[in-house]
């Protein structure tokens, strides 16, 4: 890679938008080229300034209330527009039956083991996403608010039958802000809470049934990104509305600790 190419790729590089091969090329060039170092430094300095949560504007409560109270009006006008009838088209019932039949057929032909694996995965994805959403809606995001991993980790002792790994990645833009106890898959789990700009990442940790290190699997549900991986006898589930690239970067940081 030459300097011009490095210049062209520096932005997707710091944004985690390059594939692994390209990212390695940029990384190597930056390591060896003293001329391109200042470019990386400039981007990093800028990123540090832009990470300041005070740059985020919060919606005023008055506007929030105004919009929520305006929505029923929108409902009634929508009803007028469509004549107030809830119409089920004549063809929709047979169509739905045919679709259901097709799904059943499809399932029968699929590998049995895969279905079980996948359905467990999907059920867990649903659980971790709804737990993530609950943690944001209710006032129960944190049981132990602390940016210090050495405060958060001992807090779990005595509350859980296992001791989850607790790490802070503030240097990489993922700040540990605390932890709480949660309940996933019928048991108590550790939830670590990280902040990326104004976005929250919930990292659920519990002892793994498989007990082997596996590459991360990604899921998407209701606009939330979910990543799942195993390491050192623990299952990790990271959920957030940060983009998939950033969540992947977060998971990579965590997995590097293996």
């Amino acid at each position: 890679m030459n300097c011009q190419e490095c210049h062209d790729f520096i932005d997707p590089y710091i944004d985690n938008e390059l594939d692994v091969a390209a990212a390695i090329l940029v990384q190597q060039h930056l390591r060896d080229c003293s001329q391109c170092q200042p470019l990386l430094e400039s981007r990093k300095a800028l990123r540090a300034l832009l990470n300041n949560p005070r740059l985020q504007f919060e919606v005023p409560d008055s506007l929030r209330r105004k919009i929520q109270s305006a929505l029923p009006a929108a409902t009634s006008s929508a009803r007028q527009r469509f004549g107030g009838r809830s119409v089920i088209p004549w063809f929709s019932v047979p169509l739905a039956l045919a679709a259901a039949f097709a799904v059943v057929l499809g399932l029968v032909f699929l590998n049995q083991g895969k279905i079980l694996d996948r359905s467990r995965g999907n059920a867990l994805v649903e659980e971790v996403v709804s737990s993530h959403v609950r943690s944001l809606l209710a006032t129960h995001l944190l049981d132990v608010p602390s940016t210090d991993q050495h405060t958060v980790k001992p807090w779990f002792d005595g509350k859980l039958k296992f001791s989850p790994p607790v790490l802070d990645f503030a240097d990489h833009g993922f700040r540990l802000i605390g932890g709480r106890l949660d309940y996933i898959n019928g048991r108590e789990v550790a939830a670590l809470v990280y902040q990326r700009n104004k976005h929250i990442i919930n990292l659920f940790i519990f002892p793994s049934e498989a007990g082997r290190t596996e590459a991360a699997q990604s899921f998407e549900k209701d606009g939330y990104n979910v990543l799942h991986w195993d390491r050192d006898g623990f299952e990790f589930w990271a959920v957030s509305d940060v983009n998939a690239g950033d969540l992947r970067a977060f998971a990579d940081l965590e997995m590097k600790q293996a």
Binding site: V59, L63, Q68, D222
Partner: peptide, 15 residues
């Protein structure tokens, strides 16, 4: 559905 999916995004929209 709108309440679940869109209303929580009001901060992003406003920002």
């Amino acid at each position: 559905r709108f309440e679940t999916l869109m209303v929580p995004l009001m901060n992003d929209a406003y920002n």
